[in-house]
Write a protein that binds this DNA or RNA. Structure first.
Lengths: 338, 338
DNA sequence: CTGAAAGCGCTAACAT
DNA sequence: ATGTTAGCGCTTTCAG
């Protein structure tokens, strides 16, 4: 299938009876090279399909034009949206994206970081796992990086995220304002920076009153979400409303409610997290918090690229963008009987 | 933020009073090195946070442990599903994924290929654009690669895809068997290998009878799909059923039908392409063709990794996996009046 | 304007 | 069991 050997500057030099340095200079557009020689070189290079060897350039200290992106799972639209935004920004500026999935596992995360460092990435955009290994932190510190969506205190002091607390506060307040007093919260496992802020936003509105209605769902499986929701609904004194605190959890909630044929919003009001495609079709239309993931990811990559260009030590910087409520049909005042 | 200098074998060697080759051999687990020395080296390496320089290794002929993945758009769940499958396979085998978006633009595609070749990827998994540039083809041929989901005749003779023709034949037959005689087809632009096969599958069932009901939608925008569908529905003698021939088009169809409040399946039956999250929630539940994208992508990456391991020239090989009909509520026999 | 040579970090052949 | 040397492809002095 492939021709094995790659064309090098030396191939071009020999074929033209020049030295490698002349060829190299011509290709680099060095003004000292005569226009005619430069053209000959360029033509030959195009002819042979020459592509420079990035590894060799990097050994000479060139930066790599590769940005590492570490996300828990690109299968999750939350992160594939971010990956898409990044890929666009990066390619526009001549950078490439090295995609790494951590699966939210710290050892996996470390292995991936090792790979990126070994591959000499120019910078890293990381959605850190809840509790990264010390070595992961040390390695990441060797390279310009920025945190996306989640933050861990030991990593870069620069981060771009969603204002998780505001998002959940607004979601919860919407239900509160409708008159709900038993609002259940379905969130991710404890220990995640975002999870804590989302819970705080919820508690901002309900106080400690509904502590019994807070459920922490293990990550990953939709089944867990469905089970937790079922537990809440089947328990004594069930909630009249539910807020979901992640995209995955929202999906699980929607599936469970659809399969149980719960009458939304008559029996139960629901507010989702994120506005994925299809949320508008669900039942009466899902009222949900729309999140600017694409915009945040774009800003994040712009910032990193700029920082790579400047080269200087950046000041601590935390960007936190809010979401907004998109009202559809899944919320209403609680039924009279409750 | 970062400590600038990376630790090299030489740093370790100097600190331990050894030569670089001894250090290199110790790190590589060469049996000639005494266990004690090896331990000293390993400890020091761990201490300093040594990570080998992949660029230097590659200059010595080592392969890069990086697989390039070229897709039109990771924002499309069709491809993010594939990316997820790949990332999992690859990381399990110690490989990394370089993610490239072509945006279905051939010049962009060429630029991305250049970047991958320059970066010395070990192999490439490509979803080719409809009409790649000659240079793109020449460059890809220099490196082990395989085609995913789409195929272009000038690229690798190895490909993993969906049996597009069967998928659309089954979708259309389902409507035909229900008694529909005016079945509209909404597909991608002409020129794409998959588009032609999907259209062929449709025509296998309807013959040339419904040629007036075939609409080609430009890629990318949901608006185009909605407009084409509107044109068909508002035209004289409108269809009693619609088949969609891509995920994006399916999404556009669902949005348009929802916003028009078309009574599905009473006024119009619909069969979708792919079974994305939320398709089951839409209206009466979307009857659709479920596609094994994850499985196909997994098989594809396994094959490529195996091929890299073997090193030998592979035989032409085309894998084409079928989909199956998932019946939900959006299809029914045509209304009496039609 | 162009050529010769050194060196980036690593490994493999060739010495001890 | 360890050290020395050469060279991968490229850029960058330093010499013409």
């Amino acid at each position: 299938m492939e021709a094995g050997k790659r064309i090098t500057t030396r191939d071009i030099a020999e074929r033209l009876g020049l030295s490698v340095s002349t060829v190299g200079r011509a290709l680099a557009g060095d003004p000292r090279i005569s226009t005619e020689t430069r053209h000959r070189v360029e033509r030959e290079a195009a002819e042979l399909g020459y592509v420079g060897n990035q590894a060799a350039r990097m050994m000479r200290g060139a930066s790599s034009k590769v940005i590492g992106l570490m996300v828990p799972d690109v299968g999750n639209t939350f992160y594939s949206t971010a990956a898409h935004a990044l890929a666009q920004c990066m390619s526009r500026q001549g950078y490439q994206v090295m995609l790494c999935e951590t699966g939210d596992d710290r050892d996996n995360e470390l292995a991936q970081v090792r790979g990126m460092i070994a591959g000499q990435v120019a910078g890293v955009i990381v959605v850190p796992t809840p509790n990264p290994r010390g070595e992961t932190v040390r390695l990441l510190r060797q390279v310009p990086h920025v945190q996306l969506l989640r933050t861990h205190p030991d990593l870069a002091r620069q981060s771009f995220g969603i204002d998780d607390r505001q998002v959940l506060r607004d979601a919860t307040r919407h239900l509160h304002d409708l008159g709900h007093t038993r609002i259940a919260y379905l969130g991710g496992p404890a220990g995640l920076s975002t999870g804590e802020r989302r819970l705080a936003g919820y508690l901002d509105v309900v106080g400690d009153r509904d502590a019994g209605l807070v459920a922490h769902v293990p990550p990953g499986s939709a089944e867990d979400t469905r089970r937790e929701l079922a537990r809440l609904l089947d328990g004594p004194d069930p909630p009249s409303a539910v807020v979901a605190a992640s995209v995955r959890i929202t999906e699980g909630v929607l599936e469970e409610l659809a399969s149980r044929c719960v009458a939304v919003p008559r029996e139960l009001s629901v507010v989702g997290f994120g506005d994925e495609l299809g949320f508008g079709w669900w039942g009466p239309g899902l009222t949900t918090m729309a999140l600017p993931v694409h915009e945040v990811a774009t800003a994040c990559s712009m910032w990193l690229l700029q920082r790579l260009r400047d080269g200087d030590e950046p000041a601590p910087f935390v960007s936190s963008t809010g979401g907004y409520l998109r009202e559809r049909g899944s919320t209403a005042p609680p039924a009279a009987g409750r």
